[in-house]
Design a binder for these strands. Structure first.
Lengths: 240, 240, 240, 240
DNA sequence: GATGAATGAGTGTTCATTCAT
DNA sequence: AATGAATGAACACTCATTCAT
């Protein structure tokens, strides 16, 4: 439907229910024949599939309409399940919302910030960060989720805090490390930058909001802007 | 209730209706022409008061809960009027929401961007901008409104566009002028900055979001951060 | 606006308020000069005018929408008065409705049934009745009022009863007299007809309903039908 | 409650939905194919029951109060269901009203007019018609519905037209056929009667209105009146 | 487990009526 | 008397949640 209706590792949470292990990948060898022993495997797989479909549909609806305006009915329809089924997986609309949004960004953010980055320059590290962010977040449904957090965070303090602990804080810390490296290596002159790593991420935040609100009629060349931002931090690139 | 429940020039729109002539501000010295009684003046004043109360209450509720979760009933209660009274001033919950949010920021933004600023340095101009923003927006209810626009803008495209035309575009244009001045005067080395004035505002945007979402448990020293940002743009201040 | 927006003797009830006598007809001899002694006359006249306007507007609205769907606001607007003014003339929406509808038909019905009828034949009497009815009721707004009574009568028993006492009963009685005359004179053979004068009026009732409900797409030639009805009662006309 | 709260074949429309096969009437002898449980049958039956209850309650309320004054809440209460349940069956108060009233009379009218009537006299045919009408309409809730159509038809043009096409037109056509037969056979002398079959039905229409409005305090002996009417058309009965 | 019919509390909106001006 | 802003009870309709099948 939209950009990346399935670009997320939908299985936000493993099947969980019975039979923890069996993943949906293994083919149902003998299928459900007469309800033999591998039936549970199939059943679990189906459950996982269902859950994934719900998660996926819910994220679509929530990002499109916000928490309050999203109808469970629509989520169910989009997921191809009955309304009641949703309540087998989530206690509550709010619980669903929070759980989904909470977990939707964590894996990505981990990947984004855990750049081991061996001996590359700080500038390159930030460039990689920016590229990855653009590719994996800004241009996928994750950008919508980020916007959703910003939009609904005020109404769901625990969600905001979760997001802070798991997404923002690690991200800021990672950036800070890079900046300190840059300062130590003399790549960066403004020493105070390392005290406010937020300054390095601010353009990224702005771009997410901008595209969401104004992108339709006033698109922003985010890539160029981020490059200009790096130039500001590191000075203009001398030679390519 | 909160920070600045009445720090806005509530009279988002003048009484309008049949106001004979006498404005609510100036005392009805001789009242309106031959009409004799100053009743209309009083009545109009009361109407304006009521409208202001509604506007005020509505902004409080909307910023606190968002559009969908705000109950007209609560707005009425907070404004001290009956529910029906609200419908004498606004056709509809959505109309109320949009009208309020639309106009709430415009005057401020005009003041903020229309700095004539004669012969001061570009750095001082940006400093003034930052200070004014902190004082008049970030630390007042207007910050909440800004957040509200970001939060609900996606669901109200026309609102987003209005906001862009009347708040964002003029603001960006004003900043750009300052930046170009700075580049021309040699205050700013990164020439590409003038191409993306958004970079200069990004920390301000981030701070609004940050304080709204994480301020409770992870407050940000916005003033210090903005100073660091200016240092990044203009270079560290040599001597105070 | 519609057929006969003012074909009724709007002054359903005389001014009533102060100064019983002064009718709207007499010109305000010296006008309201300095609020002299004839001011009351003018005032009363104006009041009567206002009342008439309200009555007129109310009948239009009630016949067009029925009791429940008629808004006092609309009546006021149509009458060119303020909403509150209506409550100076009627205690209540229901009171207004009943009073209007009650009196709207009485004078007409009196004229319709009080045919002195000197020495004409019974057939001619009924013909006159039919013609008068067509001209003064069916083709004017009174037809709508008749329909209104039929439509809302169930919900306003006292209205129905008033209508019965003042419109139906006299009407039926009048018709019965004619029929008895016809039987006595040998014009009418079916003696039992005089026992059910309703049979003679039934086509008239039907035509009012028919035109109101189906007239748009299946108009009925009421005149021809009524002629056929007379033929049925009196036998075909031999020579014109 | 009143006369015939359940004298209508309430099931205005069959259960419809997913009814597997087994109809509510025939006992689920072997139930539907291999589905095993006859649950669907039971569920469908219950749904049909509920719908019937709603239809029944709604007709009662609508005929008692008219469209505008009927409260969904009351219909629900009377039907013994929750308010929301009504919206599972009808999209809208107006839709409910129209659908109910539309279909409530059709089957009866079909029975009433489709008298094949082999070799009986025209008079007997009309007598049968009158008797059937009295028994099945005038003295049941259907009379109320007829009145309802007359009362609200002006406000619901499509309803009026539906009623015309499905009730009035066929009825009039049927009567016309009888009248033509009567004229052809010499039973009826007034040839023009066949041109206005409405004349033959007018007393029936009148009686429905009369009883609804004035029946309480001025009951009408409809049977006797209709007999007199037939006498008028066919001439007095000579021998029983 | 899965379903979806049923529920009923909740909310936006209307409108008859009042009353200060 | 006339006005029309203000009131608040009333009501249609929605939708999260439950539970019998």
């Amino acid at each position: 439907m939209k950009r990346g209706s399935s670009d997320l590792p939908t299985s936000v949470r493993p099947p969980a229910k019975r039979v923890g292990g069996a993943r949906a990948s293994s083919p149902p060898t003998k299928s459900s024949a007469t309800a033999g022993r591998d039936a549970p495997s199939t059943r679990a797989a189906k459950a996982a599939e269902r859950r994934a479909a719900i998660v996926d549909a819910a994220l679509d609806e929530f990002t499109a309409r916000g928490f309050a305006a999203t109808r469970i009915d629509d989520v169910a329809k989009r997921a191809g399940v009955a309304k009641g089924t949703i309540y087998l997986h989530f206690t509550d609309k709010e619980a669903m919302f929070q759980e989904l949004v909470r977990t939707a960004l964590v894996p990505t953010m981990q990947r984004l910030t855990s750049q081991p980055a061996p001996g590359v320059s700080a500038r390159q590290m930030l460039e990689t960060f920016a590229e990855t962010f653009l590719r994996d977040v800004a241009q996928t449904r994750r950008g919508d989720i980020l916007r959703l957090v910003m939009a609904e965070g005020t109404r769901f303090p625990s969600l905001a805090e979760f997001h802070y602990r798991n997404v923002v804080e690690p991200g800021v810390a990672g950036i800070r490390r890079i900046l300190e490296l840059g300062v130590a290596r003399g790549e960066i002159h403004a020493a105070s930058l390392a005290q406010f790593p937020q300054l390095a991420v601010a353009p990224v935040v702005l771009s997410v909001i901008w595209q969401g609100l104004f992108g339709r009629f006033a698109p922003l060349d985010v890539q160029a802007m981020l490059r200009a931002h790096l130039d500001l931090i590191f000075g203009e690139r001398t030679a390519p």
